[in-house]
Each structure stands twice: as structure tokens, then as C-alpha cells.
Amino acid sequence: MSEGTANIWRNGLWDNNPGLVQLLGLCPLLAISSTTVNGLGLGLATTVVLLVTSAAVSLLRSALAPEIRIPAFVLIIATTVTAVDLVLQAWLHDLSRTLGIFVPLIVTNCTILARAEAFASRRPLAAAVHDGLAQGVGFAAVLILLGAGRELVGHGTILADLDLLLGERFADFSVQVLPFDSGLLIALLPPGAFIGLGLMVALRQHLIQRSQPEPRMVREHEEPAQS
């Protein structure tokens, strides 16, 4: 892996993570992260959308005059999201019922427009694909961790309803970690999502400050798009 690619991945997963640093796409992040499986499902869908849009925007970048750039991005993103939504409805019907309105809402996830504008429209295909994947995986990781934490505190389980994602065989895959049926309710409600994300951001800051006393500048010299 070349230096540049490694950097792209470090940006997506840690230095410039969309969920923990850029704090983009909070609406789906907070609304869907009530269980591990929901987080996993939306994380995968968002990653696919990021990958496809980054690749498409990078391929088209020389044809896109600056004045039609943003409408073209929006068009590409909306098309990709609609396609993902249709595929989910057709082949993962139960999951698409769980994720409900939030798959169409990936359209409004500003991470995607931000990556198209700040990265994919300026870089060659390979770099853009890596960036889309890295940002998607970084976003999905936050969704899954937050979902696991909230599910653990709220239900006492991990990976409940995995069958929605992977089929009947996984119906009994869930692990009852803590011995209660209904736990701390606030973890499942919207405030729990904010508190959980806040704790994760704080933990990340803590880890960074412990490793080096001076707060480090964010590596990427680019303005995240306004959401």
C-alpha cells in the first residue's frame, strides 16, 4: 500500500473520521444506531453509496464544469441511493423495513457530498475509490460501535436480529450478555445516541492527547462541506 493510500485510510478511519471528527451525517448515525445490526446494515449501505459516488464523480471530474458540479453530484448521489434502496427492498426485504426511511435519507448524508466535493472530484479513480471505502468503513465502524453500546446497555444483548441481515440461519445468533430484558431505556432513545456519540468522541480525544500532549492539527487541509 503506497503512502498516499495509507494516508487515505488513516484519514477515513481515525484522523478525519466522518462520524467522530467531521461529525457529518449525524441524522442517520444517531437515529439508526439503536442496535448493532441496524448500524451494520446502514453502515454497509452508506459505504456502498460512498464507493459508487466517489468512483462516478472521479471518472466524470474532467467533464464537470465548476458551475454544474454540485447539481451533478446531487444527481449521482440520488441515483445511487435510489438504486441501493431498490436492491435492499428486493433482496433484503426485512432489513429494508427496519432501516425504513433512513436508506432514502442517505441522500442527505452530507459525508457523501463532502467527499465528492473535497476529494473525489480532484483525484484519480483509484484514490477516490480508496477514499470512498475508507470513509464508508470509518462511518460504519462508528455506527456499529455506537449500536453495540446502545444495544448492550438498553437490551443487554449483542447482535440481536442478525437474521434480518443474513437470513434465517442466524436467527439465534444473538448473545445475551447482560442478564436483563429491558435495561437502561435512555440508551435506546435519541438522548442515548447523543450521549453515546459524545462519549466516543471524548474517548478518541483522550487517546490522542495521551499519545501526544499537544493537540495535533487535522491532517487534511480541506474544508468539510457545510451540512
Partner: peptide, 19 residues
């Protein structure tokens, strides 16, 4: 410019056909 409009229209057309 006209060329930019054309590109945007083509992208829209491709998106419509794909969907």
C-alpha cells in the same frame, strides 16, 4: 455554458435510464 448544461442533461438522462 452550453457545454456544461449538456453534460448535466446527459448525466440526468443516464441516471433516469439506469433507474
Amino acid at each position: 455554458s452550453n457545454a456544461a448544461w449538456l453534460v448535466l442533461a446527459l448525466i440526468g438522462l443516464a441516471a433516469a435510464i439506469a433507474l
